[in-house]
């Protein structure tokens, strides 16, 4: 009894009151581009990138957040300090091509609210996550969205065990061949209406595994995601804000 009270007192208040307006400390997030020209024929950033996310073939430089691991190697390699990473975590997009940033495109465009999805799931969304080659990074951060800090349950959003109870399939990992059949089965088992969320660079594009011969990404060619959540892994706030944007949810934190 006293033990429980002591824990409760030490716990204090841990939840983040307003998930929509949080500034992170130290997070290596949204890339930024200084208005300095690239040296002639320089491709140091392209060479340093582990996920082929950067193109400099035709200026200006472009970075695809759908591939980017946010590792920061390009910023270290750039001789002109043109590239840097801010703490920005609002990276999700409802369009795959919305993930490409560069000079003039500072961030992915705001996620377009889906009227249909908002009507169906705006007050209650059940998610079934399936990992197909994920490294546990995305899985841990998806779990974190439900912990006492982020508490996404306050919006009626919850992970469920059975695909029969799920509205959206959250895919993590580059989609391995050995998981292809199971991914299909899980999606087939979900009732309509349903949609797909691609979580993390691997799910969106294959990420650092895009060139591997062990993948089978045909599922994503047939069922295009309604939401792309970049990162390696994505920060819980990137995930939560992406989903809330898609469903048009912008409730302030509860009054205190």
């Amino acid at each position: 009894m006293f033990g429980a009270l002591k824990v409760r007192i030490s716990q204090g208040r841990q939840y983040i009151p307003d998930l929509r307006r949080v500034t992170l400390k130290g997070f290596r997030g949204l890339p930024a581009f200084q208005p300095v020209p690239c040296p002639e024929a320089c491709h140091a950033c392209v060479d340093a990138c582990p996920a082929a996310a950067i193109s400099v073939a035709e200026p200006p430089v472009r970075l695809d957040l759908g591939r980017c691991m946010l590792c920061g190697e390009c910023a270290v390699a750039c001789p002109e300090a043109k590239l840097s990473f801010s703490t920005g975590h609002r990276l999700a997009s409802s369009r795959r091509d919305g993930l490409v940033v560069g000079p003039g495109v500072a961030a992915p465009p705001a996620v377009e609210v889906s009227a249909a999805l908002a009507r169906a799931f705006g007050r209650s969304l059940r998610l079934r996550q399936v990992s197909a080659g994920g490294c546990a990074g995305c899985e841990l951060e998806l779990n974190a969205t439900s912990n006492v800090n982020f508490d996404v349950g306050r919006y009626g959003i919850e992970f469920v065990a059975s695909p029969r109870h799920a509205d959206a399939l959250v895919l993590t990992g580059p989609l391995t061949r050995n998981m292809a059949a199971a991914v299909e089965l899980a999606y087939e088992a979900m009732p309509e209406p349903k949609f797909v969320i691609a979580c993390g660079a691997c799910a969106i594009s294959g990420g650092p595994y895009a060139a591997s011969s062990t993948l089978d990404r045909t599922f994503l060619r047939r069922f295009a995601p309604s939401l792309y959540v970049p990162g390696c892994p994505p920060h819980p706030l990137t995930i939560v804000n992406g989903i809330l944007d898609l469903l048009g949810i912008d409730l302030r934190g509860p009054a205190r």
């Binding site: 060479d47 340093a48 582990p50 996920a51 691991m69 590792c71 190697e73 990992s131 197909a132 080659g133 994920g134 490294c135 990074g137 990992g173 580059p174 391995t176 061949r177 050995n178 998981m179 199971a182 691997c202 990420g207 650092p208 595994y209 060139a211 591997s212 011969s213 062990t214 993948l215 390696c232």
Partner: peptide, 25 residues
Amino acid sequence: GYQHRGVERLLLQREPRALAPLVET
């Protein structure tokens, strides 16, 4: 085996000094 994504083969295809981001996954 469901998670097999060919890590060891990819590690041999890239510049050996720049493998850390892949190794971290």
